[in-house]
Nucleic acid binder design. Structure first.
Lengths: 183, 183
DNA sequence: CTAAAGTTTCAGTAATTATTGAAACTTTAG
DNA sequence: CTAAAGTTTCAATAATTACTGAAACTTTAG
């Protein structure tokens, strides 16, 4: 499988970004290739297109499967595994967010909860705990909120997104509405 | 400067998480130390507390300053620089989000815009461009939306956060209100 | 103006993380 | 059941990224 220059540009760039997004370079390239390729492709085709080792492809596919970003696909009379992306681009973003939350928030949140159970030994620790409480509340807020967003239906999410600066106005409406319903 | 076990636990953990958050281990430790320490401290105190080299501290402080996460502070009759965190924990989260957006979104967005200007050479590229458009729209949506959020006043942000699953209900209200105002 | 105290830089080295490729394992056509 | 084709694992190595510490530079008290 040969990539056109346009496709190669995108795939390579996505690889570079991959590490910032939470997976390594080759996993990023592999995912990009799968996103822009219409038909399911085999591990060998991926290795060939990207010039990376077969072993590396196998590990990358495993990781993408664990993130539920790709799907297995079989062709009749062919025992080879073929792969294609799973779900929409939106689903992919959701998975990335969730995975990152697990890695970037959850461990800290759990540590903070533990520390906050301790009784401060002196003034210094008293002040420290206060700060830790703030960090905790922030992380918890973000965590809860992001999982709420993920629970919204795609249409509502879309409305919310398109709302943009309108979010502020809607919040105002909320106040008015609540007032009215209390009267 | 000696850290109590509680403080050390937090500082070390924050260091480990640092790399996932966009800065390296020692920068993470330094920031954590500054967050939980009440009074401004000097670069030497930081180096001593964390047992890291003076040079490393200097570079870390520079990075934290460029992120606007810390502030310089001077004591009378002392030409040494002292440091303390800048702004609330919320401000810190905002900075981190913004910095990450710059690193993780902007370069891809700009590449995608370029590619999408090209005319697809064949069916394969036609399909690829369609996918790239989807990725582009997603990233643009997230980018725009997150900058809207940052523009909201802290109070509104807080309301929005606390709203949680209520977001869906408010969106429904929006529809009703719009309808009513059209009648 | 000088020297003492403080700060920054950066080349070398250490630590971490990613990748290869050969060997072990698995599957199924015949 | 066998062997050919395909897949997975993992130890060795490469590539990347972080850290040290000594040297160069900057600032200001006296």
């Amino acid at each position: 499988m040969k990539m056109t220059p346009m496709i190669e540009t995108f795939v390579m760039h996505f690889g570079e970004m991959g590490s910032r997004w939470g997976f390594n370079r080759t996993v990023g390239q592999m995912y990009a290739l799968l996103v822009i390729t219409k038909d399911p492709i085999s591990a060998n085709q991926i290795a060939e297109a990207l010039s990376i080792s077969r072993g590396n492809v196998s590990m990358g596919l495993k990781e993408l499967q664990s993130w539920q970003l790709i799907q297995l696909h079989h062709k009749p009379a062919d025992r080879k595994d073929y792969f294609q992306t799973n779900g929409s681009i939106w689903d992919m973003a959701n998975r990335v967010f969730e995975e990152r939350r697990k890695r970037e928030m959850d461990p800290t949140l759990s540590l903070l909860r533990d520390i906050l159970l301790d009784t401060p030994a002196n003034d210094e620790e008293q002040h420290a705990q206060q700060k830790l409480q703030e960090v905790h509340d922030l992380l918890e807020g973000i965590t809860k909120w992001s999982s709420e967003l993920q629970r919204l239906s795609p249409e509502k999410l879309d409305t919310l997104m398109k709302l943009g600066s309108g979010v502020g106005k809607v919040l105002d409406m909320k106040h008015k509405l609540l007032k009215r319903s209390n009267e």
